[in-house]
Design a protein around this nucleic acid. Structure first.
Lengths: 209, 209, 209, 209
DNA sequence: CACTAAGCGAGACGGTACGTCGGGTCTTGAC
DNA sequence: GTCAAGACCCGACGTACCGTCTCGCTTAGTG
């Protein structure tokens, strides 16, 4: 029952991969995007800064975007950002509005944090245009976080705080969608006050009773 | 009292501009983005396809993105898309939910139209990363459309169909934000059914009474 | 009776060519070959040293060898090496042996001159392996010089100093061939004494009467 | 009194060398030079074709040229080309002119044989530019053959067919030099007729008595 | 009606980065 | 300790575009 060799042409041997280079590439990539922006970051620049041959990058990633996505996932994993939240789940004090406000305020802070802003914008934009990259981005970063909303909203529904028929998968977009819209398109500033208002509007709707 | 020449260095004389070239550039730009995608579209390519010197492009636009934004605005203006809607305003049958559903369904159709998808995605992504371009994009294309929501929602509030305290500028994002989120990030398909549900959720909120 | 445009695809417009760049490329190329040798000279290095874009080299020459051949032809033309000799023809004092010895001694000196040795060896070697380059090398540099031998030997034949049936084109190789052989393959040192002996042997043959 | 290990750093142990790999490398090298030419033949390609690690090549040879020189020597040794001739010496029928013509005709045939042409040209060119390689080439391949001329011409001198004062080492170049000149520089085609004429000219000189 | 003076098509230019190839070194695991 | 395999750092390849810069050539508007 032997394992067949990988089908794809030119598949490098991952067991021989240099962990040292991998980390250096991530560090260099994030640093450059932070300093010069995504567009002015180049594979050549990353390689030079990481003290690595260009081929070592092209051996393991197909494009600049892919490198940066992995670098960003690595960063998120290390600095516990998403992972910690993912592990713990959204807060559940019993007060749905308060919990959502706390989460959205934290999201606002993160989106305003310049450390994260440049690479996140860059990756999101890249994903908007490159479906494959976008899919990985959503699957690995966004979807796990959205799933937390699903869980919290489901719990709230079972607790009777949310109308019985509501689909959490759609409901969550009432919170996340507007926030993302403001942030990506810069139509209005992202503030805690806005986060609070958004929760109120989304929870209670805008129609007169 | 003769007017001195414009202060800025190297300001071209717009009165002598070749309309013929301007149109050819727009056509070439849109065609190329449609065929090859934004990333593979180049200024050089646009010039060649338009039968125009590169300098003629650089004389009038600072970047590829700017050319495409103008080309897109021109397209929108010509094919009446946004302009026609802008002129007429959102429908007002007295039934807010029905009117919003109609508008959102139309938006869904437009976002799913392959003719518009590629350039719109490209421009949006570019605007996400380039604040200046993003600002022009929002100001010239997005904001006029959002203003229509403001008007319709204000009218609805005055008619007593929307709660008195509601800020239309925030309320509109409950509709537009989730739609944009789905479209840009491709988290779920964009359908008429979704548009309808969105209107219901946003109008009535998700909280149990 | 209009001139048809050049058939070849992507033919650059020679009338717009930058003479300044052309010279800078020649100078850089010759300098680098002299300093680092042919093998360690690169197109990239030539471009950098000449303060020129790589494309400017590739626009006008197909290969490193071609650049160097032209650089060398230019050098020969400027420093009058071949051209001056070509213009004047071989000396004709009436004493064929003495004239040939003078010429061969001069050739020995030139082949031993380090300024010429490196690039000449490099080009010759390249021509040995690349027939096209070799053909140009022979046609532009070698053949004009060999032609001088043909003329001098023909004159000598008419003056009765050379046997009537002798083909000058073959005869000249008795002088040039052995010299080149020694120089290219470094089998024995190249000296004036050797040049003199060569003339004696070739003129009178080695067979006993 | 045990022998200390060889002084040089990293001297591989020749006794453990894989004969199998050595032959595979030679075969691959010759095949590739024949198929793609010397310039397009790479160490990597040789290793891959030979089913050998690159290091196995670099362990035993300093350069591509060195591998090919050895491969060529091996070929010459095997197919008896030079060796057989070397062993037997030049023919000596008593008729110097006829013997030389026979030998030169055979050389012409060999130089025109496409099997030998590519690698021989490549090695010669490499030797023209790389003195060390050139020296090995001359010593191992060329000089043994030239020595045969020395022997034959010495015999001829003793038999009174060659003038007494003639230095065979110089005389031989009258035959070999022009031939090599034509072959390397491709100035004129290499034919049997040319070989014959060359012998006549060199034996009897070109000067009128 | 000539005479500037711009916009224009064309494309050469100095550059930067691309993605690939191969050089020569080093490491791993099998023999 | 050699060997096959191949990852690694590095330098160069030849190409694609960038944005700038001349070139003639229309094409107005002015003197």
């Amino acid at each position: 029952m032997s394992e067949p060799p990988a089908a794809s042409p030119r598949t490098p041997d991952a067991t021989r991969r240099s962990e040292r280079s991998r980390r250096a590439i991530f560090d260099a990539a994030l640093a450059l995007v932070g300093e010069a922006g995504y567009a002015r970051t180049t594979v050549e620049g990353i390689a030079a800064r990481a003290g690595v041959g260009k081929q070592t990058i092209y051996r393991w990633w197909p494009s600049k975007g892919a490198v940066l996505l992995d670098a960003f996932l690595d960063l998120a994993g290390r600095s516990g950002g998403a992972e910690a939240e993912t592990a713990g789940g959204l807060p559940d004090t019993g007060d749905l509005a308060a919990d959502l406000k706390a989460v959205l305020r934290a999201t606002v802070d993160e989106l305003n944090d310049p450390r994260f802003e440049a690479p996140t914008r860059a990756l999101t934009a890249e994903g908007v245009v490159d479906p494959e990259l976008g899919a990985r981005f959503v699957e690995r970063l966004l979807e796990p976080q959205l799933q937390l909303y699903v869980e919290r909203l489901t719990a709230a529904r079972e607790a009777g705080h949310v109308r019985p028929g509501v689909d959490p998968r759609i409901a969550l977009e009432l919170f996340v969608g507007p926030l993302t819209h403001r942030w990506l398109l810069r139509t209005r500033p992202l503030t805690h006050a806005y986060a609070d208002e958004l929760v109120e509007y989304a929870l209670h709707g805008i129609a007169a009773r």
